[in-house]
């Protein structure tokens, strides 16, 4: 049996509504299960657009997008259940009423029927909070946390789902040096255990274990490089 690639893009072009210029243009890319991909490129080169097109939140005007064999334009939901996404614009306003633990639990709840969590699920939520060192913030409203703390909450939410494909948009942007090293190390370990990771960063720290580098410029792929480990 030949395994479906984790992500398959064929001549994909995405244009934001009301715009003329494509944000990404004619992208073809194949990411295998178990890959650890770094996507780089200057501001506005289409990195975020690429991730959201992969997830099917943005619909391409042309081309084919598949995740684990599922067509992300026509039937995205099954594949999305297997993915986690850390958005770039995660910051919440100070008056946001939801609390850290609730927010992380929502990530897992998205995979459960009616969003119901079992006792084991809650245990998992607390484990991940602890792993990222934010267990003491559990009952704090998200809006009252610093940018770096909020980013860890959303990373915790992404990890709680134990995804097959992890999509991270600038996950280091608000983290301090120690946290960056810790997260980079954590991602390396998760990838080693089989998680496919696509990491977007315009200025990545030192990252170990990459299997592929993709460079975007002006919405086009300027280079794909397979890394030998």
């Amino acid at each position: 049996m030949v395994l479906d690639p984790a992500v398959e893009l064929r001549n994909v072009t995405t244009i934001y509504s009301g715009e003329n210029r494509p944000a990404i243009r004619n992208i073809s890319l194949e990411i295998n299960a178990g890959d650890y991909v770094l996507v780089t490129g200057p501001n506005g080169s289409g990195k975020t657009t690429l991730l959201e097109t992969i997830l099917g939140i943005l619909k391409p005007v042309s081309g084919i997008v598949k995740v684990f064999g599922h067509d992300m334009v026509r039937s995205p939901y099954k594949a999305r259940m297997m993915c986690s996404y850390l958005p770039q614009d995660f910051m919440k306003k100070p008056d946001e009423p939801f609390k850290v633990r609730e927010i992380v639990a929502m990530g897992l709840a998205s995979k459960r029927a009616l969003g119901r969590l079992s006792r084991d699920d809650w245990k998992r939520v607390d484990e991940v909070l602890k792993l990222l060192g934010i267990d003491k913030l559990s009952d704090r409203p998200i809006g009252r946390l610093s940018g770096g703390q909020q980013q860890k909450v959303f990373l915790a939410r992404a990890l709680s789902r134990d995804p097959k494909l992890l999509l991270l948009d600038e996950p280091f942007s608000s983290l301090d040096d120690d946290s960056r090293r810790f997260v980079a190390d954590l991602l390396y370990k998760l990838n080693r255990k089989g998680m496919t990771i696509v990491l977007v960063s315009h200025a990545p720290p030192k990252i170990a274990g990459l299997t592929m580098r993709v460079r975007l410029v002006d919405g086009c792929i300027a280079g794909v490089e397979r890394c030998s480990s």
Binding site: P87, E96, R157, R161
Partner: peptide, 21 residues
């Protein structure tokens, strides 16, 4: 019955959508 779903959508609809809701 659907409170957990609604809650997640009320918090961040886009993220809930990205997670397969």
């Amino acid at each position: 019955l659907l409170w957990n779903r609604f809650q997640s959508i009320l918090f961040d609809r886009r993220l809930a959508e990205a997670e397969g809701v």
